[in-house]
Design a protein around this nucleic acid. Structure first.
Lengths: 200, 200
DNA sequence: ACCTGAACACCGTTCAAGT
DNA sequence: ACCTGAACACCGTTCAAGT
C-alpha cells in the first residue's frame, strides 16, 4: 500500500496515538506509535519532525484537553478549579512531566491558559510584579501534587525500627484517599496564605 | 583483559558513574555508563541487576548526598533547610524525578530522612494524624520548585497578543533570579500558613 | 570471580524506490 | 504526496568463552 487514496496519517492522528499510549502507561516512541497505528515507523516522518515534533504535538493536545476558561469567577474559586484540573493532568501522565517543564512554552493554547491565570490574579488585586511568582507557585503545587497522586499506594516501607514514621504510617490512609487528603490540605494552606497576603 | 587482578567495577562505582552522567545532563543508560568507565556494557551485569538495579543504586546515592540530619532545631527552621536542599536535589537531577517519585521508598537513608522530618513535626506540635499530609505537601513543594529551577531561562514566549501575560513577562526577572524569588515567596507562604494552622 | 565478544530484539532516523 | 523496505547507529540483555 504505497500511497492510499486518502492519507492514513496526520500530525493530529500521530499526536493522539502518542498521548493515548502515554495515558495507558505504555511506551510512546516512534516505533510504538507506528505499531499502534498499523503503519511503518518511517511513514511518520512524512508528517512530523521526528520524536521532538511528536512530543510537541502531544504537549499541545494534552494541555488543550485540560484547559479551563475564565468566565469572571473570583480568583480563589477559579484557582481551586485550575489546581484540581492541573493536578489531574500531571497525575494522568507522570512520564510527561519532565517534557512539560523542561521547555519554553510557545503553544498558543498554553499561553492562553497562562494569560487567563495572569488576568484573574491581576483582576483579583495581586500586585503586578508578584503575579508571575504566584503563577509559578501554583505550577509547582500542581506538579508536586500530581506526582503525589501518581505515586504508589504504599509510599514508605520502613525496613527497620523508626522513631515516629512507622507509627504514623500504621494509622494513616493509603493510595488516592491519602493523596486527596494531602491535596485538600495543601490547597487550603495555599489559598489561605494568598488571601492573607492580599489583605495586607 | 579478561580478569584483572583487582576488579574494575563495583555497584558503588557503577552507581556513582550513572549519577555523574545524570548530573551533567548526559544519557545514563547501561551503554553510556560502560563507556564512561572504559568497559564493555556486558561487564556491568556481573555487579548489578540490569538498568533497574542501577537506578536503585543511583537513587540511594542521590538522597544520601542531600541528607539533612535533625539536631533539635525548631521545626520551621529545619523545614526551611530541608526545602532548600530538596529543591536543589531535584533541580540538579530533573530527569530522575519520575524515577524518584514512582516507587515505594525502602532505602534506609531515605526512610531515616523522612523519620527525622516526621519527628520534628510531631515535636513541633502538629497533630499526629496530619503529619504525613504535611510531609507530602512539603515533598510536592520541593519537587515543584526543583523542576521550576530546572526550567529554561525563558519560561513563556507568547507568539501573539496577550491580555496580561506579555506585559508581566516584559517587566520580570529571568532564569534563576526568577526561580529564587518564586521559591522565597512559596516557602514564605507555606511556613506562614503552617504556623497559622498550628496556632489554632 | 570477572571481563569480553557475539548475538538478539529493540530504538530513532534517513533515503531511494514505488505509486 | 505518502507509504515502504533497507540501512545505519544506537539501546538493554543474555550467554558461552576466556583467564
Amino acid at each position: 500500500m504505497p500511497r492510499p487514496s486518502s492519507p492514513l496519517l496526520s500530525p493530529e492522528i500521530i499526536g493522539a496515538a502518542g498521548l493515548a499510549l502515554a495515558k495507558d502507561g505504555d511506551p510512546f516512541g516512534v516505533n510504538a506509535i507506528a505499531r499502534s497505528l498499523g503503519v511503518r515507523p518511517s511513514s511518520l516522518y512524512n508528517h512530523v519532525e521526528g520524536m521532538d515534533g511528536i512530543l510537541e504535538l502531544m504537549r499541545g493536545r494534552l494541555v488543550d484537553g485540560y484547559r479551563i476558561e475564565w468566565n469572571g469567577e473570583p480568583w480563589d474559586e477559579y484557582l481551586q478549579v485550575v489546581l484540581r484540573t492541573q493536578r489531574r493532568m500531571y497525575a494522568d501522565h507522570p512520564q510527561l512531566v519532565p517534557l512539560l517543564v523542561g521547555k519554553t512554552i510557545t503553544h498558543p493554547a498554553v499561553i492562553a491558559a497562562y494569560d487567563d491565570l495572569a488576568s484573574v490574579l491581576v483582576d483579583g488585586g495581586f500586585p503586578e510584579d508578584e503575579v508571575l511568582s504566584v503563577i509559578a507557585v501554583i505550577d509547582a503545587f500542581a506538579i508536586g501534587f500530581g506526582l503525589d497522586l501518581a505515586s504508589p499506594d504504599e509510599v514508605w516501607q520502613p525496613g527497620e525500627e523508626t522513631r515516629t514514621l512507622g507509627r504514623l504510617i500504621d494509622g494513616a490512609e493509603r493510595g488516592s484517599a491519602r493523596s486527596d487528603r494531602t491535596f485538600a490540605l495543601g490547597v487550603g494552606l495555599l489559598i489561605d496564605s494568598l488571601r492573607a497576603r492580599l489583605a495586607r
